[in-house]
């Protein structure tokens, strides 16, 4: 899997003298560095929720993570390169997670395993749930699934290896950690009345001021939602009972509108039937 391909190494723009062929390989530092890094990714031994069971399953007998040089799961963040967020991140837990992330030495990667870590998953609206770890940490690879099968996780890990292969030491956007000095640590969230991201302090303060002035708080300041645009349509449809489709409407959208109207009509009919007592 992670064999260094010698023929690839020699095909560079610098010709290798004949007598040195087979003894000498020329490559770029990036390539060599990436190869060694991606072949010994050590994940943090760190399970959060149900997805962790599949992660352990991936590491265990049948699927065997060590085929990818990743079997050395470290208990300490100081020794690990990869943080697999394997499960639901709660507000209470995100504090230690960010702390652990800060303790990992660079280069470091984060993988969001499963629906919960990627975006909240089935528990998204829970009052103690962080809807996706990417609200706090930069994520390199998302693995969908609830839980992702071990095969999916392996695929994600291979995707991460590919990503590393493509990174260049020269490009600071790609790999911030080869710049000057260590990066700024991620600010650690605070558990107040609700979880507080220090990066949003300003916004919270402004909102609090608005609340004092009696203006709508938090939920009021919204970008226009498709739902809102649909409101008048709904009433109109009720009155005329036939969906109005504007002539200039895009056909896909029109089709969707029509389906929606039909579904609404069905629901109303059902409700009416239920009210009548049947």
């Amino acid at each position: 899997m992670s064999q260094l391909d010698l023929s690839e190494l020699q095909s560079t723009e610098f010709p290798v003298p004949d007598e040195l062929q087979g003894n000498l390989a020329i490559t770029s530092i990036s390539k060599l560095y990436n190869w060694s890094r991606r072949s010994s990714m050590w994940p943090l031994l760190f399970g959060l929720a149900c997805c962790a069971i599949e992660m352990i399953g991936t590491a265990a007998s049948r699927f065997d993570l060590s085929r990818f040089g990743m079997e050395v799961m470290r208990g300490s963040p100081r020794q690990s390169d990869l943080m697999i967020i394997s499960g639901t991140v709660t507000k209470k837990m995100v504090v230690p997670i960010v702390r652990l992330y800060n303790q990992m030495p660079e280069p470091k990667y984060v993988m969001a395993m499963g629906a919960c870590a990627s975006g909240g998953g089935p528990f998204k609206e829970g009052y103690n749930v962080v809807s996706g770890i990417d609200k706090y940490l930069p994520v390199d690879v998302y693995v969908p699934g609830c839980p992702p099968t071990p095969q999916a996780l392996l695929y994600g890990l291979i995707a991460l290896q590919k990503k590393i292969d493509g990174q260049s030491l020269a490009n600071m956007d790609d790999v911030p950690w080869y710049g000057v000095g260590p990066a700024e640590p991620t600010p650690i969230p605070v558990l107040g009345p609700d979880i507080i991201d220090p990066r949003q302090m300003d916004l919270i303060r402004r909102q609090a001021q608005m609340a004092v002035q009696g203006k709508q708080f938090a939920v009021g300041e919204l970008p226009a939602l498709p739902e809102k645009k649909a409101e008048p349509k709904k009433v109109e449809a009720k009155a005329t009972a036939a969906p109005e489709v504007a002539a200039d409407m895009d056909p896909v959208k029109a089709e969707r509108m029509k389906k929606r109207e039909e579904a609404l009509a069905r629901k109303r009919a059902r409700e009416a039937a239920a009210e009548k007592g049947e």
């Binding site: 009052y127 962080v130 809807s131 979880i195 507080i196 991201d197 909102q207 938090a218 939920v219 919204l222």
Partner: peptide, 11 residues
């Protein structure tokens, strides 16, 4: 999208 903080929070 409905939350100004873009997060699952309310203060």
């Amino acid at each position: 999208e409905k939350n100004v903080y873009g997060k699952n929070v309310r203060y």
